[in-house]
Design a protein around this nucleic acid. Structure first.
Lengths: 121, 121
DNA sequence: GAGGCAGAATTACACATGTAATCGACAGGG
DNA sequence: CCCTGTCGATTACATGTGTAATTCTGCCTC
């Protein structure tokens, strides 16, 4: 699967949330703080199409865009990549790191424990 | 903290593992499968110096390179960034994703549970 | 002391990415 | 029917990255 750049990812997020959408609709839904012009969003859409991670159907003179890959798949690949690179593929090393940095709230811990318990049954 | 590109990261890994080293030493220790020439490694070292994530001291006519940032700090930042982007900052969402993808072995689960239990005391 | 080798510094170049502007086609309003 | 706004497509341009080659400079060897 092609890599998706960070900026492009924001566009994918929009379409994973709601699809199909026109370019203008996507632009309207991209987070404000990006401050992108419509032209910029269109460029991203083209590049994502070229990468094969978006598909489009014609709707008269416009395109309707929709994701061609599943969010879960992409997220799985990216997080796997990070875990491989930074933690030697060892998930517990990641968790230990998060713990050491106080990134885990009591609620997080409880939730994760519940998840793991469910896994074992 | 400056971003470190993926290729550059491999160089940092070498120096986090052992420092200080000369450029040639670093090149010799970079994973084979990168297939980088000495020149390439030197370019990366320069860029990492410019980014301020490496430091160097002179050793006669050569440089000895050493990390200027801690591995834990960088890894924490990068994993935090990924968790924010892909999981809305929610660690349990990441764990759930890993679980759903069968990325957790029984040993992993046991280890993580032990970690979490220790956290609560 | 001249030539070559070893280091760093400088330069190179293609592709990716962020961020658009511009172009060409066409549809709808007046 | 022509103008204008709207589309996608094409082009632009700076910066980052991968991947070096080339240059400059001094030390070592013969």
């Amino acid at each position: 699967m092609e890599r998706i750049a960070e900026g492009e990812y924001a566009v994918m997020e929009v379409l994973w949330d709601e699809a199909p959408l026109t370019a203008a609709d996507v632009a309207a839904r991209v987070p404000e703080d990006k401050g992108w012009s419509l032209a910029t969003v269109k460029t991203m859409l083209s590049r994502l199409l070229a990468k094969g991670v978006l598909a489009h159907e014609e709707d008269g003179r416009r395109y309707l865009y929709r994701p061609a890959i599943r969010r879960e798949d992409y997220v799985a690949e990216e997080s796997g990549r990070l875990i491989d690179r930074m933690f030697g593929g060892r998930v517990p090393a990641l968790v230990a790191q998060l713990a050491a940095r106080d990134k885990l709230t009591a609620a997080d811990i409880a939730e994760i424990e519940k998840l793991l318990k469910a896994l074992k049954s």
